[in-house]
Design a protein around this nucleic acid. Sequence first.
DNA 1: CGATAATTTGACCGCTTGGTAAAACATTAC
DNA 2: GTAATGTTTTACCAAGCGGTCAAATTATCG
Lengths: 214, 214
Amino acid sequence: MAIPRAAKTQRRTRIQEEKEERILEAALDVFSQNGFRGATIDQIADAAGMSKPNLLYYFRTKEAIHRHLIDRVLFTWLEPLRAFDAEGNPESEIRSYIRRKLEMARDFPRESRLFANEVLQGAPHIEDELKGPLKELVDEKAEVIRAWARSGKITKCDPYHLIFSIWSTTQHYADFDVQVRAVLGQDYAGEGRFEDAARFLEQLFIDGLRARNA
Amino acid sequence: MAIPRAAKTQRRTRIQEEKEERILEAALDVFSQNGFRGATIDQIADAAGMSKPNLLYYFRTKEAIHRHLIDRVLFTWLEPLRAFDAEGNPESEIRSYIRRKLEMARDFPRESRLFANEVLQGAPHIEDELKGPLKELVDEKAEVIRAWARSGKITKCDPYHLIFSIWSTTQHYADFDVQVRAVLGQDYAGEGRFEDAARFLEQLFIDGLRARNA
DNA sequence: CGATAATTTGACCGCTTGGTAAAACATTAC
DNA sequence: GTAATGTTTTACCAAGCGGTCAAATTATCG
């Protein structure tokens, strides 16, 4: 019998690990470009260089692949926020959070778009994760920000909307990449826009949040 | 013969106008929730309360419906930016631009998501519009902002990234609505989050862009 | 009214889709 | 080796898809 599919008890062969990785890599391409419904198993199998039944030997359904990817992405997506340090200096914490998120948009645009696709279409597969772990983490960090505001280190502001605005401005460069490129024009062939964006966003958030002493 | 489809020379019957409107309304629902590939003609026909062939009598293809919608949305989507007035006071212009965009996110979330879906998936249907009319308008307004900065009315900053950041922060409340709700929790049953968002964003951008005299 | 044009329907088509069955092939364990 | 297990392929569904067709129905106009 052959009932390995996702490893029954233990991940056995190295071939399994390899193939699963190849599938997930291909699936990231396809899902991030077409969304869940727009992606087809054939496309993914093709991109992974294997036949459809072969692919379905490792992941029983299209949803299984998607779940795997989403879980992984959700974890790394939250990393920068986790690193947010209550003990640190507010200004440099916010600055490095922005930098980190921008780097993710630059280096992992597919991951960002996969996530965006999912949320945009109502997050049918990850509602629980959003309401659970995500909310908890944000609640925790919002409290940190609020404390900073209370102690006068930054201006008083709604911490949730602050977090939202950092998310949205940074991810914009991954999710709306085509639009950004179209507007900026050809001259922006390189990755210079990320440096410019970093400069602008740091200025905006640092100055916008600086405690007003007057 | 019956070759009206989208009105040969002139829009004839009132019934045509009505049905087309119903179809577009239904299609907006379906496309904005599932993206182009994820949406099916049957779904749209169902939502519009008519049979598939009947729908196809008014729009020959799925793409035709989509194009119609996109064109319409792109126009209204740009309205607020068009209203951006070079003669006005920078602070109040930016403030009202943010307000307008937030109102659009609140009142026309489907339109925003339709657009987001399209851009997210590489804008296959509207690349030309992005590189043409959109870029031109943004270029024009960027010059306005740059002039403001030169004359010291606001701080020096990259006008393109400023526009991007206003787009992203405001649309976030439409496009990532599920996530916003999940994080803010049940208590945010009403539309209060839009007021809070407006307060936060106005503060952020106004203070962040205020000319520094020191 | 009757004729003509506009609208709607049901039946259908060819293709794609997610997924299966079973057998062929490869690998490992003894 | 050979037997057991793991992997891949070929052939195949049944359902869903975008779209067509011709006939039936309804509205419009003289």
